[in-house]
């Protein structure tokens, strides 16, 4: 029973550290994936007197990647329905040209605003209309989460490390007699701390698995997908590699602590 409590005392802070690190990494990944998704979810319509060329535009605004002319016959067709009878070909030459413009990444509201101004500077452009859709709010919320997760990461890292350190000190004390006797028979350092290393490796493995499973569950749950309105937030492959990475980080923390705590032992060994 006592040993179970001992394990939990190490598993909890390790879990907290790894959970927060993964939270941070995951939000980052979700944001990147989300940006890709959102990049198809805005529109910029440019009205110009003269034909526009992508190359010319790109000289002034680098992140434009595509320019698509909106067929004006659609507009004319609608005019016709209202009963106004005009010669379409003649009219076409009077009408301005409509273009849809695509950017390399999802623009923020500020970026859209500045883009609008830059576009209007260009000769021949008469009007610019921009629309972003509702997803912008969620996007902003993700960015917000990303920022506070940095803050939590810092706090949890500090308190978590302190708790890990404390727990390993307790273990060290519990096993100090055994380690002392081993030293009396000339056991090398690594052999004396082997028992502590074994315990901490087991607990790191448990913490990593817990974190991994919880995130796997969250990412597959419908709740998150519905909230963000996106299928496949993060590819499972991506968290699998995170799992390994987290295990490595956990091992580093616990092994490093074991070594530091054990080296601080009294000098008579």
């Amino acid at each position: 029973m006592r040993s179970l409590k001992n394990h939990i005392s190490l598993i909890i802070p390790l879990f907290a550290i790894l959970f927060t690190v993964e939270f941070y990494l995951l939000i980052d990944k979700i944001i990147k994936n989300y940006e890709k998704y959102l990049s198809k979810d805005y529109s910029i319509v440019v009205v110009a007197k003269e034909p526009l060329k992508l190359e010319n535009l790109r000289q002034k605004i680098e992140d434009v990647i595509k320019l698509k002319e909106v067929d004006s016959s659609l507009v004319l067709g609608r005019l016709k329905q209202t009963g106004i009878d005009l010669d379409p070909d003649q009219l076409k030459s009077y009408l301005p040209r409509f273009y849809k413009l695509y950017l390399s990444s999802f623009p923020s509201t500020q970026r859209l605003q500045s883009l609008k101004e830059e576009l209007l500077q260009i000769e021949g452009i008469q009007r610019v209309e921009t629309f972003t859709k509702t997803h912008e709010k969620i996007y902003k919320f993700l960015i917000f989460l990303n920022n506070i997760s940095k803050f939590f990461l810092a706090i949890i890292l500090v308190t978590g490390l302190m708790l890990v350190f404390k727990q390993i000190e307790i273990w060290n004390l519990e096993h100090s007699e055994r380690m002392y006797i081993m030293a009396l028979f000339g056991a090398p350092f690594w052999m004396r701390i082997a028992v502590l290393l074994k315990l901490s490796i087991i607990d790191t493995l448990i913490s990593t698995l817990l974190v991994y499973l919880i995130y796997l569950y969250l990412l597959n749950s419908n709740y998150l997908k519905e909230l963000l309105g996106v299928e496949d937030l993060v590819a499972p492959r991506q968290i699998a590699s995170d799992g390994l990475w987290l295990f490595g980080l956990g091992l580093f923390i616990s092994i490093f602590t074991v070594i530091v705590v054990s080296l601080r032992e009294p000098k008579n060994r």
């Binding site: 006797i181 028979f185 000339g186 056991a187 090398p188």
Partner: peptide, 25 residues
């Protein structure tokens, strides 16, 4: 030095007044 002491102790066989057995083993 600790490493040299470990080396020396491998050639010693010590019997302690209070036995000093490892109780977990």
């Amino acid at each position: 030095k600790p490493s040299k002491l470990s080396f020396l102790r491998k050639y010693l066989g010590i019997i302690f007044q209070d036995y000093k057995l490892i109780k977990e083993w």
